[in-house]
């Protein structure tokens, strides 16, 4: 289980995370929603140890990420997969090598096994036949699907998605949401998605949490969010410019 306890983080005197407390249930998908700039990506980077909190704790299976050394943190990171907002594919190598990268770094597999795994991974995301292309030759949606394949290739315990549908058309967004649901069912990973796509959250989430002013203000299932009395939540899910959220 992943738990963030009283996490505070500031950048140049701007408080981004303000005593943040949240836990993520194992083998379920939690979607954290919130406006842009509310600290969702910052929270995600704390979970994989890319950022360290000013105060508070980030626990992964009861291990405090701040209390372990770099080598131990790297061992722990092998249990994570992450899909970055723009894919973060390595632009100097082709799609095959991008997906094969974690395998080559961490497993001693034969070339034949690597080919088999990469082809299967790309097939799972519906992208067979693009192995020799470079990332720059792909559309945004294809890049994200390749990023999903790369994140899944080591069959991690936890997969983090940083705004997986941002910048995609509604159909491609639905493709990505379905991909998340199907891969989660298949691999049984703990999924943490940060997004401001409400429809996508309703579709993919077992639990939804809303981050506002650096803290979680509401957490529950899709139904709870649809019927929430919290004016901030209501304004956000209805997408209204009128309400307590100052623009």
């Amino acid at each position: 289980m992943i738990i963030l306890e009283n996490v505070n983080k500031s950048f140049k005197n701007v408080k981004v995370l303000n005593n943040l407390n949240i836990s993520f249930e194992d083998k379920k998908i939690t979607v954290v929603i919130g406006r842009s700039g509310e600290g969702k990506s910052v929270m995600l980077k704390h979970i994989v140890g890319l950022l360290r909190p000013d105060s508070g704790r980030v626990l992964f299976n009861d291990i405090d990420l701040n209390a372990i050394n770099k080598k131990e943190l790297n061992e722990l990171r092998k249990k994570f997969g992450m899909v970055f907002q723009d894919g973060a594919l390595f632009d100097s190598i082709n799609i095959f090598e991008n997906v094969a990268f974690p395998l080559r770094q961490h497993l001693k597999l034969s070339e034949g096994d690597i080919i088999k795994k990469v082809m299967s991974g790309l097939n799972d995301v519906g992208l067979s036949g693009i192995e020799s292309k470079m990332p720059a030759e792909l559309s945004g949606g294809m890049r994200k699907r390749v990023a999903v394949a790369r994140a899944m290739i080591l069959e991690p315990e936890t997969v983090l998605f940083d705004e997986p549908t941002t910048g995609l058309d509604p159909i491609m967004s639905d493709v990505i949401n379905n991909l998340i649901i199907s891969t989660q069912k298949h691999f049984k990973y703990t999924g943490i998605i940060i997004s401001h796509d409400i429809e996508g959250a309703y579709k993919t989430a077992d639990t939804i949490a809303m981050l506002y002013e650096g803290a979680i203000i509401e957490k529950g299932d899709a139904e709870k969010f649809k019927t929430s009395d919290n004016p901030v939540v209501r304004q956000f899910v209805t997408g209204s410019m009128n309400g307590p959220i100052v623009i």
Partner: peptide, 8 residues
């Protein structure tokens, strides 16, 4: 960041 998350 992707490299770091992949424990490289």
């Amino acid at each position: 960041d992707a490299l770091e998350v992949m424990a490289v």
